[in-house]
Amino acid sequence: MANTQQLEDITTQVRRDILRMVHKVNSGHPGGSLGCAEFFVSLYNEIMDRKEGFDMDGIGEDLFFLSNGHISPVYYSVLARVGYFPIEELNTFRLLNSRLQGHPTTHEGLPGIRIASGSLGQGLSVALGAAQAKKLNGCNHLIYSLHGDGELQEGQNWEAIMYAAGKNVDNIIATIDLNGQQIDGSTDTVLPMGSIKDKFEAFGWTVLEIEKGNNIDAILKGMAEAKSLTGKGKPVCVLLKTVMGNGIDFMMHTHAWHGKAPNDEQLAIGLAQNPETLGDY
């Protein structure tokens, strides 16, 4: 068990990884990655019950699916930091012949990845399939998934949300990154979605909110509660209220850094706000 300070140190290092990865290739999505850094660090270090090493079927362990694949920087950083592949490989993000493609893929055989994602709206369905495979295999471990709030504008999500409740898929915790931002602006200006909580509940899900989605203690407490609600006949949704760009002051509370990399000067400022903890890759 890591303590909160240790997890915060990892998060600080992950923020540095994210900034350095997108800066080097002048592309990628830092905003949403930074907003979910605490969640990923908590998930992979504390929340999920994982086996050593990696095999595709993942029987006997909890599995995670990232539906909003554009936040690959945080995914890759955390996968490397917990040991799925060497941290030096973060240097190859988005480069030719890299396993760290712009969006996550199984195609290059990167350990830790079980499905390609990036074309939005498919991840919840995939996660439900994996959840049902777990049931068929008599495996009591859980499926975790993450989705953007803007991503819920894709209709396939609602097919999956309806299915999960209708078929009592209760071994899944689907987390929505509720940062209120998408590429073109705030979700309210692009396409107001009303209450996401009400919608999930109307479809028959158990919904739990984590108000401080960038606070590690709040995440650990909320996800523990979510886990306690699984296995009761209903799928579980966590609404994780995060700040896009969290941890880099000039990137916070705006959609401007959704898909834009910092320049040299901005990188220096961002790194100064997040001193090295575990050592840069």
């Binding site: 595709m56 993942g58 599995l63 499905i115 369905s125 995939v126 399939g129 994996a130 049902q132």
Partner: peptide, 8 residues
């Protein structure tokens, strides 16, 4: 997509 997930 569920079919894809079931293969895992």
């Amino acid at each position: 997509s569920i079919a894809a997930g079931l293969t895992i």
